[in-house]
């Protein structure tokens, strides 16, 4: 079988698997930790997890595609999260989403072609008082117009 794992440093993975050992019900925390370590869930790594834990690949893929937190492809350098929770929705969040989508040619949930940005639409980050809310990397911006948001995004 072709060794597909050569492009990845497996040490972090092995450390994670060691920590969870044979505990049951650990698929989600393992994937969460792996994603933290590798930035996303590379298929090669999933294959390695399956090989070492005997968790069937279908289960790993089923879980990885079920939960919105997991990504199967790398993310852009900067993460833009636009809140479309109810308060933000009625305060114009859809306008902001459309503006960013148009500016960077990336539909919500994807990355810009140059992998500089990733756009995610999230539901309620709990800052309803600041609606509409945009989080660029970990900085929270509230009450901004679409143009003002584009400016913040440009300046990261």
């Amino acid at each position: 079988m072709l060794d597909m794992t050569t492009n990845f440093d497996l040490a972090p993975l092995h450390a994670i698997l060691e920590e969870y050992g044979s505990q049951k019900g650990t698929v989600i925390p393992i994937l969460q930790r792996v994603q933290d370590a590798y930035g996303y869930l590379p298929k090669e790594i999933l294959a390695e997890i399956s090989k070492r834990t005997n968790i069937p690949l279908t289960q790993l893929m089923g879980v990885a595609t079920f939960y919105t937190q997991f990504r199967l492809s790398p993310r852009g350098k900067h993460l833009i999260r636009v809140c479309d929770g109810t308060a933000c929705h009625v305060s114009g969040a859809p306008h902001i989403v459309r503006a960013i989508e148009k500016e960077y040619d990336m539909p919500a949930g994807s990355s810009s072609p140059d992998l500089k940005y990733t756009l995610e639409v999230v539901y309620c980050v709990g800052a309803c008082g600041l609606a509409p809310v945009v989080i660029v990397d970990d900085k929270v911006y509230g009450r901004l117009s679409p143009d003002a948001v584009l400016e913040k995004v440009r300046d990261v």
Binding site: L46, P56, L57, T58, Q59, M61, G62, T65
Partner: peptide
Amino acid sequence: EAIGIVYRGFKARIAFGMDSTMQDS
């Protein structure tokens, strides 16, 4: 356990192995 479900909601579908082909699963 070669067959599973991937994605969810209206996008859910059956998948083989690592969402590849039955052949590669």
